[in-house]
Write a protein that binds this DNA or RNA. Sequence first.
DNA 1: GCGCAGGGGGTCG
DNA 2: CGACCCCCTGCG
Length: 277
Amino acid sequence: MKNKVILSGKSEEFNPKHIFECGQCFRFEKENDGSYTIIAKNRVLNVLKKGDEIHFNNTTDEEFSDIWEDYFDLKTDYSKIKETLSKKDDYMKNAVAFGNGIRILKQDLWETIVSFIISANNNIPRIQGIIERLCEKFGKPLEYNGKTYFSFPDAEKIQGDLSFLRAGYRDSYIKDACGKVLSGEVDLNNIRTLSTEEARKNLLKICGIGPKVCDCILLFGLSKCEVFPVDVWVRRSVSALYETEEDPRQFANNKFCDLAGYAQQYLFYYMRETNSK
DNA sequence: GCGCAGGGGGTCG
DNA sequence: CGACCCCCTGCG
């Protein structure tokens, strides 16, 4: 029987709201009590911040150390990352303060590939809907708290006509990803051993993966934390705030070095949240 | 309320 | 460089 795990003294480095709403993942639900229920790793987990404690419901000590510690990347010390980035400039300092408690998740690579293919030229509510329909149809049912959730399906499960997803032209991209992963043309078992550049080259073989989607996959699915995905928001903030014509990726790699991925996440979240309100 | 543009975490040809 | 599926949102 699953129970709960409580983590204390980590609240400065772990804020569920910021972690799930900063744009890196799509399969989360905010509950009435302020907690977040997420589906990942073929499991359902509920995360509640309660004062200085983080409550992880529906897991065990063993599962927590086997699965969730890695997923939440709990071994990484964010205080150093935040300190280093905050010293870069005032804007980054504000972005870091705003997104305090963000962590870059180590998400399932295949799920990240499909999710970010779906994300291209799309908006978040619709992206989430498409992913949910995909999981309902092809995933495995998971019971939690009287509700049925669905795991993210493996490539071999995704087949047939995908028009029910209402993903539009992305159907064929999803199919292409399934085909190339199943055939081994893009070998996900081996890709973790490759350098960032080699991994990028491989991922770009899939139709529907361009530079931006690829960088999101590298950052969120392969933990390539020096990668700086440039979307419309980040491009705007870099050119406006830093008043540079330089390619944002070059700029970020020079300025933030191996922390560019973290910097991107703080910038993206700060930009989005402060611009839409 | 409802109908209609506008545009969306880019990518492809 | 223009078109792109299909919504989701906001304005009239």
